[in-house]
């Protein structure tokens, strides 16, 4: 197997696994930049996966080919509303944000499985009829080498993920909204003094993270899992959270980290056909993302600085 063939099998696979992580990690960046820890990303992905699958199963005859796209939009909306629970608890009721996030994870899985039993009378849903399919991009896929590597057999959602990461970067670092978002996460009191609505900004950020988590979860469900059960989303949300931190709370950093995690995941699946890596026991490839995150946190791969007020509820008038 030549070098190019190896790359041609790894790159689409890596991006395929990375896309859901990228979406969710971008959501995590929004939430954490505003100062709200979001351990609930996992639950938001569960909600997204559940809604995406159920919508797809119910309406695939009505919407035909557009079904998966409409499904992910519906999943985004529902997950954004679901994230409101986390927002109310951790912003208005000053709940411990980590605890509230843990509760979100429990709640999403509980609701998803309860309704699955209720509607399908079994532990998992049927397989969806209209998932996302791979496509070759016209014209671009004809370019020698590059066409094979980046533009053939790809999911459109993978491109969407990368584009959205750049959009998020632009919003957070180049717009007034982004400046406000960051200032609320760094020093809410100073932001409040300058007339920025701290609570409002944080609500918007948490709901954005819900929308992105829902997008990530539904894309995962409609490209990889294809049905919903208790084992559909197992840890992808936590891995996205890891990508947020590994990427130093920066959308493009998170993008890179998520692609790396996707790469690591794809290796543990396609790795057996890659020279060099076929001798590495699978266990090392499986734990690599987690070990690397810990090393990154410990400062071995450049120190990661969290937003200053991360995890602190803002109480108006308190010093």
């Amino acid at each position: 197997m030549g070098f190019i063939d190896v790359l041609a099998s790894i790159i689409p696979a890596a991006l395929f696994f990375a896309a859901p992580l990228i979406f969710t990690a971008i959501g995590g960046v929004f939430s954490e930049r505003s100062g709200i820890i979001n351990i609930g990303l996992e639950g938001l992905m569960v909600m997204g996966a559940f809604v995406g699958i159920v919508f797809n199963l119910t309406f695939h005859e009505t919407f035909g080919d557009a079904t998966p796209w409409i499904s992910i939009i519906v999943a985004m909306i529902v997950s954004a509303l679901f994230a409101l629970v986390h927002a109310v608890a951790s912003i208005t009721f000053r709940a411990d944000q980590v605890v509230s996030g843990v509760a979100i994870n429990f709640l999403a899985l509980g609701i998803g499985l309860f309704l699955t039993k209720q509607w399908y009378e079994k532990g998992q849903t049927d397989m969806v009829e209209r998932p996302f399919y791979t496509t070759d991009i016209p014209v671009l896929s004809k370019i020698p080498v590059i066409g094979d590597l980046f533009f053939s057999g790809m999911y459109l959602t993978s491109y969407l993920a990368i584009i959205l990461a750049f959009v998020a970067w632009f919003i957070i670092f180049k717009t007034p909204f982004g400046l406000r978002l960051r200032s609320v996460g760094e020093h809410p009191m100073a932001a409040d003094t300058n007339g920025i609505n701290v609570y409002g900004m944080r609500y918007v950020a948490v709901m954005l993270s819900g929308a992105m988590g829902g997008l990530g979860g539904s894309v995962f469900a409609l490209t990889i899992a294809l049905n919903f059960s208790h084992a559909t989303i197992v840890g992808q949300g936590f891995m996205s959270l890891a990508a947020v931190i590994f990427g130093k709370w920066h959308p493009l950093g998170a993008l890179g980290a998520a692609i790396f995690f996707g790469f690591a995941q794809s290796l543990s699946i396609v790795g057996s056909s890659v020279p060099v890596l076929e001798d590495v026991p699978q266990i090392f490839l499986l734990i690599a993302p987690y070990v690397l995150t810990i090393l990154a946190l410990a400062g071995f791969i450049g120190r990661a600085e969290a937003p200053k007020s991360l995890g602190e509820p803002y109480v108006k008038g308190n010093r």
Partner: peptide, 19 residues
């Protein structure tokens, strides 16, 4: 469905957290 209890437990955590 058994899963009802998972929802109840999640809500209990929410209520405690939102003390």
């Amino acid at each position: 469905p058994t899963e009802l209890v998972e929802i109840v437990i999640a809500l209990i955590i929410f209520f405690v957290a939102s003390s």
